[in-house]
Nucleic acid binder design. Structure first.
Length: 893
RNA sequence: GGGUUCUUAGCUCAGUUGGCUAGAGCGCAGCAUUCACAUUGCUGAGGUCACAGGUUCGAGCCCUGUAGGACCCACCA
């Protein structure tokens, strides 16, 4: 029994099957206690830093979280093993809108509302709720094996982060990048807040399209209830059908509630080919209409209130909900003879809020915006707009997005980017640092600053009031990479200017810009783009050097996992106890390429559980073999198998490293999997059973554990803790394997042995042989491996003789044969004929390639030489096949 | 309307800058049985890489087009 590192007790009597749940929590505790995940800014190592995308504190972690934790953990562990100082900074997000929606629902279930209980009580309850969620979620991150630095855990509502938010708002305001104005926003009447353009999703719906008579015109609409105030008729300036009308003409038309004084507007935004080419506009409730109204300085009038009810302008319909009012309005227009037609098959897009699923009603509101078009930022020596900076950092290569194709998508999004509406009418979040007061003459004064303005005591009636709104949750997340790195104590001292806080924050100076941002492509715009926007503005640095985007995990049937189909949702916490975290981690990266979605599959989970068990049993075998080995010295390979495995270990290490360096996780893992299973377990371990000693065996296991550690940290560390020679060390910080010398010739001999064994097995099976002998002539290296070959192939024996006859192997150039009787001749000849045919076809195609002068002249020399070697090899195989056919043709006849 | 992406074995998917006889997992067929592991081993079957052109000595990979699927952005009153 070896025990006790960090409380971990492990038995030498390892169970036959790896039981992850027996070890995982102890192993994680060992890591935490040993402090191996803590970054050290004082060290002189190369840095690797990565900010964890903070999960929303809304409850529990999903498979999507499991995926990003796995990918980031692989990077962090690999870089740590490369000897770098790694900072993986964890955190959580207050998720303003999402949490707010949950809380309002809770209150509603209790029969109350936030307005009833008041702002303070609401915030108190919310804090309680997210506190519980956070505890659960941090535990789940540990369960996934996340090797993050818990001493630097951050939260978007931390004091220091709050300061960053306020500082950013104020600096942007002072630079003229943030402004307050009346603009069309996406208003959600359910949640009673506006949301940004990105949070709106459109769903197709079949509806009615109405055409009404409006004076001399016919106008179309899907929303008659917005049309009460329509007094502008808009048409394209080049539309010849309406050339008799001039911009600014007025006319009187009969409309829903009586005559309207209408004005002609000519604007190119109108599509002459749609409908009649004429429309009336509702600037208060449509973005396009609003833009037209702005261009021509037209009046804007609100028709629908913020609860979704019609205002007094609707006359007899005032106070009605839209759904109720619409048919009544249409009926009235029909009665007045103004209804021309109704198209029942009109498909239009209905805007809904992704969070609350409420139908969005565009409204004009006085809100705060981030201006993305005004050149207000100094970037690389020039005044730029935020939009330009966002484009430049990618174009200049300051930030690389993987996979590359997302750069195009990113540019496309930026091209369409409008000002970002950042104020929200909810209570949970960062309150906007703006205060207002109304002067005696009725003008409103605005104050924006880090601290509240002082009230003028002499005017008790005239006090400052803070803006009741909070900021879009992405406004604070956008600061994540650096707001998490500033010194918490310095930031608490408001006397220290913010620039100095940044300058004096060791972590910020050491780890920013971060090396990597790993996240899902679905928040490229919400988050990644906003981080670039805010971080370049505030720090003059990019937030990260690389962006790796992973895909979504869908249900087994390829559809989205969705709350409406609870059975489709897989909870990582259901998977882990049964299959182990390592199996889950590897299933999530196996056969997956960046940016592509993947389907959940229980098959992959099982395959990877089995893989963990394979590693486990290789270890059991090795431990059993080496006994109480207390020190592992440099391995000195003696047998062909040892040279072979060490040379393959070296090759595998190089390939895995190259893949991981290029963030090709799936390929790296695939390489590891096949080395461990197909090479170590199936060949080297088998070969070792014929050997004594075990230094190389122990060495190979040790290196294998290091290579597998980033992928399967728990099982590898568990084994490491059991190994008799590893002392009190922790695998998580062991250096990546370094090459050892292996003899190429000896390794090649073992390759020959593999050929001989494989062919013998196939022959025995195909020809129904029963424990034949293998004889050979003049193959020095076979002698030492005779027993091994016999055992692995199921042979009666392997012996050297001076000469003899039998069934000759054809995959090896060495002369060896099985003793057989004449009865198999026919079957053997048939088999040979098939093989000969294959080889002839191959030879023909290779020769044709070499006859092509263009190929020989144009292709790289190595490629041509390779072809020549293949020809020689194929010819040799063919010669053996033919000789064998000759011999057996005689026996057969 | 603009854009991205996918189509490779029965299923789910890899395939790095164009270059060995295109791979994996699962599934399938047959054989093996307690010697690290049945969460096992061995042997094998199975693919005109959606289709049609083009570039190239050479195309699953590059270009053009076609068909079908998925998604993103914009959004027409």
């Amino acid at each position: 029994m070896k025990s006790n590192r960090g409380g971990t007790i492990v038995s030498m009597q390892l169970s036959k099957v790896y039981e992850p749940s027996e070890y995982e929590s102890d192993i994680y505790a060992l890591w935490e206690q040993s402090g191996v995940f803590a970054a050290d800014p004082e060290s002189h190592k190369e840095r690797f830093s990565i900010s964890m995308p903070p999960p929303n504190e809304t409850g529990t972690l999903s498979l999507g979280h499991a995926l990003f934790l796995t990918l980031q953990d692989i990077m962090a562990r690999y870089q740590r093993q490369q000897g770098k100082d790694v900072l993986w900074l964890p955190g959580t997000d207050h998720a303003a809108l999402a949490v707010n929606a949950i809380m309002e629902k809770k209150l509603s279930n209790e029969g109350t509302t936030k307005h009833h209980i008041g702002r303070d009580a609401f915030l108190e309850r919310t804090r309680e709720f997210v506190g519980e969620s956070r505890g659960t979620m941090l535990g789940q991150m540990r369960a996934m094996g996340a090797s993050c630095d818990w001493s630097r855990l951050r939260y978007t509502l931390d004091e220091a982060l709050n300061r960053c938010v306020t500082e950013t708002f104020v600096k942007m305001y002072e630079a003229g990048v943030i402004y307050r104005g009346h603009r069309i926003v996406n208003w959600d009447p359910n949640l009673e807040t506006n949301v940004s353009d990105d949070e709106v999703s459109y769903e197709e719906e079949q509806g009615k399209f109405y055409t009404f008579r409006y004076g001399p015109f016919e106008i179309g609409t899907a929303r008659p209830e917005t049309k009460f105030g329509d007094k502008y008729v808009v048409m394209h300036p080049d539309d010849e059908r309406y050339s008799q009308y001039t911009h600014g003409d007025t006319l009187s038309v009969e409309w829903i509630n009586g005559p309207i004084h209408a004005t002609i507007i000519k604007d190119a935004a109108v599509d002459p080919s749609f409908g009649t080419g004429v429309m009336t506009i509702t600037p208060w409730h449509s973005l396009v209409d609003f833009d037209i109204a702005e261009r021509h300085g037209l009046d804007k009038e609100q028709i629908i209130d913020f609860h979704g009810k019609l205002l007094p302008i609707a006359g007899e319909f005032a106070g009605m909900e839209i759904a109720e009012a619409r048919p009544k309005i249409v009926a009235k227009l029909k009665e007045k003879g103004l209804l021309v037609s109704i198209d029942d098959n009109y498909v239009h897009n209905v805007a809904t809020n992704e969070r609350g699923k409420g139908v969005i009603e565009p409204q004009v509101r006085l809100q705060w915006f981030v201006d993305v078009n005004t050149p207000a930022v100094e970037w690389k020596g020039k005044q730029r707009s935020l939009k330009e900076v966002m484009q430049l950092v990618i174009r200049d290569g300051d930030i690389e997005i993987m996979p590359k194709r997302f750069e195009k998508i990113y540019f496309h999004w930026i091209d369409n980017l409008r000002d970002w509406c950042i104020s929200r009418q909810i209570w949970w979040g960062h309150r906007i640092p703006a205060w207002y007061r109304t002067d005696t003459d009725g003008t409103v004064e605005t104050f924006v600053g880090l601290t509240p303005p002082a009230d003028d005591e002499s005017q008790g009636w005239n006090q400052w009031e803070q803006d009741p709104d909070t900021l879009d949750t992405w406004f604070s997340s956008a600061l994540w990479t650096w707001s998490t790195l500033i010194d918490q104590e310095l930031a608490a001292d408001m006397n220290i200017p913010f620039e100095d806080v940044l300058k004096q924050s060791k972590d910020f100076q050491t780890y920013h810009p971060t090396s990597m941002m790993e996240t899902g492509w679905d928040i490229l715009f919400f988050w990644v783009a906003r981080m670039i926007l805010s971080t370049t503005f505030m720090t003059g640095e990019v937030p990260f050097q690389k962006v790796y985007l992973h895909g979504l995990i869908r249900a087994e049937d390829g559809k989205k996992m969705s709350k409406s189909r609870p059975e489709s949702i897989i909870d990582p916490l259901d998977v882990i106890p049964k299959y182990g975290t390592d199996a889950l981690r590897m299933a999530l990266i196996m056969g997956v390429s960046p940016g592509n979605d993947q389907n959940w599959g229980w098959g992959k989970i099982e395959a990877n559980r089995n893989f963990c068990n394979k590693i486990w049993n290789i270890s059991r075998y090795t431990i059993d073999r080496v006994g109480e080995l207390t020190e592992l010295t440099k391995p000195e390979p003696t047998t062909d198998a040892e040279h072979w495995v060490l040379s393959n270990l070296q090759r595998t290490t190089e390939v895995i490293s190259a893949h991981l360096d290029a963030y090709r996780f799936s390929e790296a893992y695939d390489t590891l999997y096949h080395f461990v299973w197909d090479e170590v377990a199936d060949w080297y371990i088998e070969a070792s059973k014929n050997e004594k000693g075990g230094t190389v065996l122990a060495y190979v296991l040790e290196q294998l554990l290091k290579l597998a550690h980033p992928f399967a940290p728990f099982v590898t560390e568990t084994i490491w803790q059991v190994l008799p020679w590893t002392g009190t060390t922790v695998l998580a910080v062991q250096p990546w394997p370094i090459p050892v010398h292996a003899d190429k010739k000896a390794a090649a001999h073992f390759e020959e042995i593999r050929s001989i064994v494989t062919e013998s097995r196939a022959l025995i099976r195909d020809l129904g042989l029963h424990k034949p002998h293998l004889y050979y002539t003049n193959v020095p290296f076979l002698g030492g491996n005779a027993e091994l070959i016999a055992r692995m192939s199921g042979l009666a024996g392997v012996q050297e003789v001076s000469d003899g006859a039998g069934l000759h192997l054809v995959t090896t150039s060495y002369r060896c044969w099985l003793d057989v009787d004449a009865s198999i001749a026919e079957a053997h000849l048939e088999r040979l004929a098939v093989q000969t045919n294959e080889q002839q076809q191959r030879l023909a195609s290779l020769q044709a390639r070499l006859r092509n002068e263009n190929y020989v002249n144009h292709a790289p020399k190595e490629v041509v030489n390779e072809t020549k070697a293949q020809v020689a090899e194929t010819e040799a195989t063919l010669a053996r096949l033919q000789a064998e056919q000759h011999r057996f043709a005689e026996i057969g006849s």
